[in-house]
Nucleic acid binder design. Structure first.
Length: 472
DNA sequence: CGAAAATTCCG
DNA sequence: GGAATTTTC
């Protein structure tokens, strides 16, 4: 019987897993996970996402063990470890679902050369996105540069039917060596990250039950409330999509077959397609995580100070909505999407700190950190990306607060020192009179900072900086 | 006529 | 997002 290594990477599940299903049909399977030791691996510094990887591996190992299949875990150079494993198990084939992280693509290029030399069968499958991106090109056979066109095009594509959980057999008499999950050292000893377990339950079953509940009770409210951070109306699916606890194709199909359809359905599907669009960009522009797609931005006169950057990180900018978001991130590894846009815009445009610095902070802190989404998000905000917000669209943090957190509930949740301020001043405490501040037991400059930069000044300064590269 | 609302422009 | 311009009543 053919022995097939199923190489798990960002698809840590047993449902709708193309490589696992096909391998199980064709032979006996050897499931493998390898944590790359190279610093170039995009998730090497992702403290929060590594925590969720740890949980995801526990879940995958249990789900496979329940079927009598052991998961082999390794750490090191993936090419070396894979070749070693093939030797140890005398495997005939390697099956895997395609991943698009530049590090993985580069490593795979070398691995496939090695494997073809040693006559090992290699099969890759479509599994982690809705659509096969190399099929999605515009009429000039170029990648799409506008989301709406991309969306219209993908709406005409078929999303392949999810795979069932396969019957699996393992006939290995002796198991190759495997590390214990904790030996991957994915858990940080940092006190902030060790509190992630108070906010999240990560795993395949958790992902599915979470999604089922959202589909039943949350989706119909999505359109109306998704932009209000205090409404908790988003799906909170992103942490489960990073390591593939749940299959995005399964999500898509469960929405299609759901009896209740409404305006929320399309809005939600668009969000899933944005994720595909991010990967489409990453596939065509692998430098996207570190280089602006619009070249003029290579000479942008960034001048932000490290002290401002630190205040941003800690949620001490003096703008309540910005600070609430940054504190939510520190406390939970998560931030509402609307607020992500506001804090990112503030860092880049009000503080003139390079977007790559903000991107690094998100890389470390976000539980749902994903290379493609994060790079697209920062380039979108900065204005240097594909179909991005133009640079001159500079979010006013006070106006955004009034619009999306009208009662100030979100601000009060994450900035307790402001909790007694009346609604009128919750997004601009510096305008409150001494009397009102006293009543709210708030001393500005002591309990909560004055704004580190004035909005209109910062706005003009940003536009001036932009004018310098605009001519180029 | 003037104020307010809608549209357009910038990328 | 915000300023400038045009349309509406």
């Amino acid at each position: 019987m053919k022995k097939i290594i199923v190489w798990f990477r960002k698809d840590l599940r047993i449902h709708d897993h193309a490589a696992l299903f096909e391998a199980a049909q064709q032979g006996c399977i050897i499931p493998v996970f390898i944590w790359p030791s190279e610093q170039e691996f995009e998730y090497a510094d992702s403290i929060a996402a590594k925590w969720s990887l740890h949980q995801s591996l526990i879940s995958l190992r249990q789900n496979l063990a329940a079927k009598g299949i052991p998961l082999i875990i390794r750490k090191g150079n993936i090419q070396k470890e894979l070749l070693q494993l093939i030797k140890e198990t005398s495997a005939d084939a390697v099956f895997y679902n395609r991943c698009y992280e530049p590090f993985m693509v580069q490593s795979l290029f070398e691995i496939e050369i090695q494997l073809s030399k040693s006559k090992i069968e290699v099969q890759s499958f479509h599994g982690n996105l809705l659509y096969q991106q190399f099929n999605i090109l515009n009429k000039n056979h170029e990648p799409y540069k506008v989301f709406t066109s991309y969306w219209k095009r993908t709406m005409q594509e078929h999303v392949s039917t999810p795979y069932a959980i396969p019957k699996m057999t393992s006939t290995l008499a002796t198991l190759p060596a495997s590390l214990e999950i904790h030996e991957l050292q994915l858990l940080s000893t940092n006190s902030l990250e060790s509190r992630l377990d108070q906010h999240w339950e990560i795993g395949e079953q958790e992902a599915i039950s979470h999604w089922t509940e959202f589909l039943e009770y949350g989706l119909n409210k999505y359109e109306r409330y998704k932009d209000f951070p205090s409404a908790q109306a988003t799906s909170l699916l992103s942490p489960y999509l990073v390591w593939g606890n749940i299959s995005v194709k399964s999500i898509w199909h469960s929405i299609q077959s759901h009896e209740i359809q409404g305006p929320s359905t399309e809005t939600f599907l668009r969000q899933l397609v944005w994720r595909d669009f991010a990967y489409d960009q990453l596939i065509h522009f692998p430098t996207m995580p570190i280089k602006p797609l619009r070249e003029a931005y290579n000479t942008f006169p960034w001048e932000g100070s490290s002290s401002d950057f630190n205040k941003w990180k800690l949620g001490q900018t003096g703008y309540p909505l910005v600070d609430a978001g940054m504190r939510e991130l520190l406390a939970t590894g998560y931030m509402h999407n609307r607020v992500r846009m506001v804090v990112a815009s503030f860092l880049v445009k009000h503080l003139l700190v390079p977007w790559t610095e903000g991107s690094k902070w998100f890389t470390q802190k976000l539980i749902d950190f994903d290379v493609a989404n994060n790079a697209m998000g920062w380039q979108w905000t900065t204005g240097c990306g594909i179909d991005s917000a133009p640079f001159f669209r500079i979010f006013n943090p006070v106006a955004q607060g009034k619009r999306f957190d009208p009662n100030g509930d979100y601000v009060r949740q994450w900035i307790p020192e402001l909790k007694n301020l009346p609604q009128k001043f919750i997004h601009k405490p510096w305008e409150a009179s001494q009397e009102i501040l006293a009543l709210a037991h708030l001393e500005l400059g002591k309990d909560y900072p004055f704004p580190i930069v004035e909005h209109n000044f910062a706005r003009k300064r940003a536009l001036q900086a932009y004018n310098l590269i605009k001519k180029a």
